[in-house]
Each structure stands twice: as C-alpha cells, then as structure tokens.
C-alpha cells in the first residue's frame, strides 16, 4: 500500500498539489506539528600531538534524552560508537526535533592504544554543520556534523 500511496502522491505533485502523507505529520504540515531533523555526527579524536587515538568510546547524547535511530525507528537514549585506528568515528543517522546535545569521549581500553586519556565532552553546537538535504515543511533537512576532539593524557598524580 505504501507504494500505491507514493505513486498517488507523485501524481498529485505532477498536478501541482501537495500530498498528505504520514511522513509530514498526517498531511498537516501547515498546521500544528513538530520539526524533525536527521543528522549524523563524524569526527576524529587525537592526542595533544595530533596523533589519532584508536578505541575511544564516543557517545552522542541528545539534550532531551530522547531520539530515534532513524535507520530502524527504535528508541534510544544515546548512540554509542568507537574510533578506528585513524581516530575517526561516525554516529548512526540520528533523528530528533533539533540538533542539540553533546558528545562524550571516554577511553575505555585503559593503557592500550597510546595510554590512558581523560574523559571529555563537547557540545554539538561546536560542530561544523553541512546541510545535505533541504527542509520541507516540518522536516528540517539532513545534516552532517563534523566535530574533532583532542584528548589530554590522564597523567598519574605526583605525590
């Protein structure tokens, strides 16, 4: 039925009319609704000398504690990923009402991969934003957020 709906919506668009669809909030994009934005956070984690750090846990945590993983519509409170050997990380495609929240960086493998690094965080507002898809009605578009982070070594305390 979804295909039929899409075909009919396409025909309506060809005639110069907008279609009502579930995606745009039940076809009432002009009336009351809620903005939805898709975004993915990418970046690189390095040490103070600029060397990439492998195995850093990166948690994307939204400001309001709720968002879906747009790939499977499941509920998640946060999205967790890890840096690769080049220090690069990439979150899932996230969906929320706004791009608000922060990234939490934690060294979870102890001495491995260049020693122990201090836990740190960064606001998504610090990210460089690249728009990949235009907004349409309540849909605010799709974005890529690029946020690089330098982590400090967790030096042993001197007595």
């Amino acid at each position: 039925m979804l295909t039929t709906t899409r075909v009919l919506s396409g025909l309506l668009a060809l005639l110069g009319f907008s279609a009502c669809s579930d995606e745009n909030g039940g076809g009432m994009s002009e009336e009351y609704g809620s903005p939805i934005v898709d975004y993915q956070v990418k970046g690189q984690v390095t040490d103070a000398e600029g060397n990439p750090i492998d195995g850093i846990q990166v948690i994307a945590k939204p400001a309001y504690g709720v968002y879906t993983d747009a790939t499977n519509s499941s509920w998640k409170n946060a999205d967790t990923t890890y840096t690769d050997a080049e220090g690069n990380f990439e979150s899932s495609l996230l969906q929320n009402v706004a791009m608000e929240g922060k990234l939490l960086f934690e060294d979870v493998d102890g001495e491995a991969n260049g020693g122990v690094f201090q836990t740190d965080s960064a606001s998504l507002q610090e990210a460089e934003t690249v728009q990949l898809e235009e907004r349409d009605g309540w849909y605010m578009g799709r974005y890529e957020l690029i946020l690089n982070k330098q982590l400090a070594k967790d030096e042993p305390k001197q007595d």
Binding site: L8, L12, L15, F17, C20, S21, D22
Partner: peptide, 13 residues
C-alpha cells in the same frame, strides 16, 4: 483530477 487522487489517499489515511 487532483481531488480524486487526494480522495484515494484520504481513504487510506
């Protein structure tokens, strides 16, 4: 034509 198509979509909704 547009209203006829919209009717079909409406019925589904």
């Amino acid at each position: 034509l547009g209203l006829e198509i919209a009717r079909k979509l409406r019925q589904e909704q």
